[in-house]
């Protein structure tokens, strides 16, 4: 082995450019590891069809195969495209669900592998690890949503009468709320491993309250009141409106406004929980435990 010169000052320098490079490195690392597990193709292509299917077939059974029972659905929703309606609701639900598992488990997985501590040893801004791990996840989810749209349009003949740019706009505006919740979870499970149980609770609440497979109008008033406090309600409504109806921007303006507010709230909460976790982990040593 060859010798080196005597050590002097460390090579690293903390500039904002180097912080950005560190964030980019986290994204690249996560992406590289992601594509090395081949199962991702399955999740991108197959899940969008399998998962909503049960609901779509239930709806088909209830409405009659010839669609004779659809009048009531149309009165309640203003839409006739019930396959698209179910697909949008369940896909948004699935998006939030996968974010809770993947983003929510991002730090926890590293903790179990043992790499979280070695990241924590470096002088990089620590939120970058969570943020960076979420970016490839976000990209894969956007691809999944796109793939599912294509699958429903071409395999099931769903007529997306709305506008693609508006749909994308809604999804873009939804990101802070969807991922803020994921950040909060990711931080909680580091210090309280049992918090995982809450994923079931959250996704159950979204399933029941947010109108994933039925219009809010059929809920009792108190449930509608609860739904008004959940961002997923607005996301689902807005994506349906943007993708399936011809109402245009009018149909989503209120939802977007609410989503901006919810997004700011959940993102701030996610970052606050992260900061709390970081402080607490330094006291309990949680980062290094698995």
């Amino acid at each position: 082995m060859r010798s080196e010169p005597i050590v002097s000052a460390p090579l690293g320098r903390s500039t904002s450019l180097n912080e950005m490079r560190a964030l980019a490195a986290v994204i690249r690392r996560e992406w590289t590891i992601f594509i090395r597990y081949p199962s991702w193709i399955i999740s991108l292509l197959i899940w969008p069809i399998i998962f909503p299917m049960g609901y779509i077939l239930t709806a088909r059974a209830l409405s009659g195969v010839d669609g004779s029972g659809l009048t009531q659905f149309q009165i309640n929703t203003g839409l006739t495209e019930y396959v698209g309606y179910m697909a949008v609701g369940t896909m948004i639900w699935m998006w939030q669900n996968v974010v809770l598992w993947n983003v929510g488990g991002a730090l926890r997985n590293e903790q179990m592998r043992g790499t979280l501590e070695s990241n924590w040893l470096s002088p990089t801004w620590r939120f970058a690890y969570l943020l960076g791990a979420s970016v490839p996840q976000l990209i894969s989810m956007l691809v999944m949503l796109l793939v599912s749209g294509l699958e429903y349009a071409f395999l099931f003949g769903v007529k997306f009468q709305g506008s693609l740019p508006l749909t994308l706009l809604v999804i873009l505006v939804s990101i802070p709320a969807v991922y803020g919740l994921g950040f909060a979870f990711a931080s909680l499970v580091i210090t309280m491993k049992e918090a995982n149980a809450f994923v079931f609770l959250v996704r159950g609440i979204v399933m029941v309250f947010c109108g994933v497979t039925y219009p809010l109008a059929i809920q009792p008033q108190w449930m509608q009141n609860v739904a008004a406090w959940l961002p997923q309600t607005y996301i689902i409504h807005a994506v349906r409106s943007a993708a399936l109806s011809t109402e245009g921007f009018q149909g989503i303006a209120h939802d977007l406004q609410m989503l901006v507010l919810f997004g700011a709230f959940w993102l701030a909460l996610g970052m606050a929980v992260f900061a709390w976790m970081e402080r607490r982990a330094r006291q309990t040593g949680a980062i290094g435990q698995y």
Binding site: R13, T15, R28, R29, T32, P123
Partner: peptide, 18 residues
């Protein structure tokens, strides 16, 4: 799941080495 080289490149960025 990374190579030895990829590991070192990654951590070099975390230590803010240009």
């Amino acid at each position: 799941k990374l190579s030895g080289r990829e590991n070192l490149q990654y951590f070099a960025a975390l230590y803010h080495i240009p």
